[in-house]
Amino acid sequence: MSGAPRLISSATEFTFAGRSDDIAAFARDFRALARRRLVITGGAGMGKTTLAVQLLLELLRTRATDQAAAGEGEIVPVPVLLPVSRWDLTECPRLHDWLAVRLPQDYPALRDPELGVDAAAALVAGGHILPVLDGLDEIGEQARASVIAALNTSLGAHDQLILTTRRAEFAAAVAEAGRRRLAAIPRRRLRCAREGRPR
């Protein structure tokens, strides 16, 4: 899901350990990435989701401080946990369109008329949401490759992402997605963003 290593980090090592007993260091490592995209891998039952939630909570805890330290124009997004299994790629082939549908379903306050009908879509388009996608390995093999392909198509230069999965399933999905030729998806709001329904 990333390009040349130089886009990920200025360091020579592109993997780092996330530990529950030092989640602050894990959050610092994530924030130090030049392109903040992280895949949390591990075996079955090793606590990938727990670690992702701990990271999410730490990023929320330090968000005010991070905002104060951010450069001019830099956005510090709000991390939001979402299960990959709820993403219907047939209706919403682009991540941003699915987020615009899913967020108001999970957070009804975003449907407040005072915020406007497109509040969630505006937050997503503005880079104010950091999706924490949980459980890539819990969906079918072909679906996993489709999710990776959709992420590769959806993510722009400044989009951030955290994904949890078992390592073998992730490697296989990346390899399969790389073999596919994808048709371009227009950068417009799709039907799912207007007529989304709970899944």
Score class of each variant (00 low, 15 high):
residue 32 A to T: 05
residue 11 A to V: 06
residue 12 T to K: 13
residue 30 F to C: 09
residue 11 A to T: 02
residue 35 R to M: 10
residue 32 A to M: 05
residue 7 L to C: 06
residue 30 F to H: 04
residue 28 R to N: 11
residue 26 F to Y: 03
residue 44 A to G: 08
residue 39 V to D: 07
residue 40 I to K: 11
residue 40 I to A: 03
residue 34 A to K: 14
residue 14 F to H: 08
residue 44 A to V: 15
residue 32 A to D: 00
residue 33 L to V: 02
residue 33 L to N: 12
residue 12 T to N: 10
residue 43 G to P: 06
residue 41 T to E: 11
residue 24 A to I: 06
residue 10 S to A: 12
residue 14 F to W: 10
residue 17 A to K: 12
residue 21 D to W: 08
residue 15 T to L: 03
residue 37 R to K: 02
residue 26 F to Q: 03
residue 43 G to F: 07
residue 13 E to Q: 14
residue 29 D to L: 03
residue 12 T to M: 11
residue 19 R to D: 11
residue 47 G to Q: 01
residue 44 A to M: 13
residue 31 R to Y: 00
residue 40 I to F: 09
residue 23 I to Y: 05
residue 42 G to F: 08
residue 25 A to T: 12
residue 37 R to P: 01
residue 11 A to Y: 09
residue 45 G to S: 05
residue 43 G to L: 08
residue 28 R to H: 07
residue 7 L to D: 15
residue 9 S to F: 05
residue 17 A to P: 02
residue 43 G to C: 00
residue 26 F to I: 06
residue 45 G to E: 13
residue 9 S to N: 12
residue 26 F to T: 12
residue 39 V to L: 15
residue 17 A to D: 10
residue 7 L to I: 12
residue 41 T to N: 04
residue 19 R to S: 13
residue 45 G to R: 05
residue 30 F to E: 06
residue 39 V to C: 13
residue 23 I to N: 00
residue 34 A to F: 00
residue 41 T to I: 14
residue 28 R to V: 05
residue 40 I to D: 04
residue 15 T to C: 11
residue 40 I to N: 07
residue 25 A to L: 10
residue 29 D to Q: 10
residue 34 A to E: 12
residue 27 A to I: 02
residue 46 M to F: 01
residue 23 I to E: 00
residue 21 D to F: 09
residue 27 A to W: 01
residue 29 D to K: 00
residue 25 A to M: 12
residue 46 M to T: 15
residue 39 V to N: 02
residue 28 R to L: 09
residue 37 R to D: 14
residue 9 S to M: 00
residue 40 I to P: 00
residue 46 M to Y: 05
residue 10 S to C: 10
residue 41 T to L: 09
residue 18 G to M: 15
residue 48 K to A: 04
residue 24 A to E: 11
residue 18 G to N: 06
residue 36 R to S: 07
residue 20 S to R: 10
residue 25 A to K: 11
residue 27 A to S: 07
residue 42 G to M: 08
residue 16 F to C: 08
residue 26 F to M: 11
residue 23 I to R: 04
residue 49 T to V: 03
residue 21 D to Y: 11
residue 25 A to D: 15
residue 37 R to N: 06
residue 14 F to Q: 10
residue 8 I to F: 07
residue 19 R to K: 05
residue 43 G to Y: 01
residue 11 A to P: 07
residue 13 E to D: 14
residue 43 G to W: 04
residue 47 G to K: 02
residue 7 L to R: 14
residue 43 G to Q: 03
residue 45 G to T: 10
residue 7 L to K: 06
residue 27 A to V: 04
residue 42 G to C: 04
residue 22 D to F: 08
residue 38 L to D: 05
residue 27 A to D: 07
residue 18 G to L: 15
residue 23 I to Q: 01
residue 21 D to E: 12
residue 43 G to I: 07
residue 46 M to G: 07
residue 46 M to D: 12
residue 38 L to R: 01
residue 32 A to N: 01
residue 28 R to T: 06
residue 32 A to Q: 07
residue 16 F to R: 05
residue 46 M to W: 01
residue 47 G to A: 00
residue 43 G to S: 00
residue 10 S to R: 14
residue 23 I to F: 08
residue 41 T to Y: 05
residue 18 G to V: 15
residue 32 A to E: 02
residue 9 S to E: 01
residue 23 I to H: 05
residue 12 T to A: 14
